[in-house]
C-alpha cells in the first residue's frame, strides 16, 4: 500500500538511529532487526539509501571489520551529531504521537 510506505518513511530514520544507538551494526543486521517489526520492514535498497544519507549528513561513522564467518562487514555507528539528531527526533516523535492520538481519538484541546 502506497500510504503505508509514505507513513513509514517519516519514522524509519528515527528507528535506524535508535537501532544504531544500541551499538554499531552492519546493513544486513539492521535490515534483519527492522524485519522483526512488520510495520517497519522496508526494502533493503531503501535502507542503504538511508544509511548513505546519514553518512553524508555526518550522523553516522562507517568502519570495515572482518567477521569470524562470512565477508568483511561495513559497520555503521552513531556519532555525537547522530545522537543529538536521535534525541531531537525521539522527542518530536513523542509529541507527535500524543497529538496524533488526540486527533484520532477525537479529543480537542
Amino acid at each position: 500500500m502506497a500510504w503505508s510506505g509514505e507513513m513509514r518513511k517519516g519514522v524509519v530514520e528515527l528507528c535506524v538511529l535508535a537501532l544504531l544507538d544500541d551499538g554499531p551494526a552492519y546493513g544486513y543486521q539492521i535490515a534483519q532487526r527492522l524485519a522483526l517489526h512488520p510495520s517497519l520492514s522496508m526494502k533493503e535498497s531503501t535502507l542503504y539509501l538511508l544509511l548513505a544519507r546519514l553518512q553524508k549528513e555526518g550522523l553516522v561513522a562507517v568502519e570495515m571489520r572482518a567477521s569470524e564467518r562470512g565477508p568483511k562487514r561495513r559497520y555503521f555507528s552513531l556519532n555525537a551529531d547522530g545522537r543529538a539528531r536521535l534525541k531531537g527526533m525521539a522527542s518530536f516523535w513523542g509529541e507527535m504521537r500524543e497529538d496524533v492520538g488526540a486527533v484520532i481519538g477525537g479529543e480537542t484541546s
Binding site: 513509514r8 552492519y26 544486513y28 535490515a31 522496508m42 533493503e44 531503501t46 539509501l49 538511508l50 562487514r73
Partner: peptide, 30 residues
C-alpha cells in the same frame, strides 16, 4: 553485501534467488 551475507548464512541459496533479490534493489521506496 546482502548477497554475500545470504550466501554465508544459507549456502544452499540458489543463483536465481540471489538475482531476484538483487533485482528487488532496483526500486527503493525513497
Amino acid at each position: 553485501e546482502h548477497v554475500e551475507e545470504l550466501i554465508a548464512n544459507d549456502p544452499s541459496v540458489s543463483e536465481s534467488e540471489l538475482i531476484a533479490f538483487i533485482n528487488g534493489f532496483s526500486d527503493p521506496e525513497i
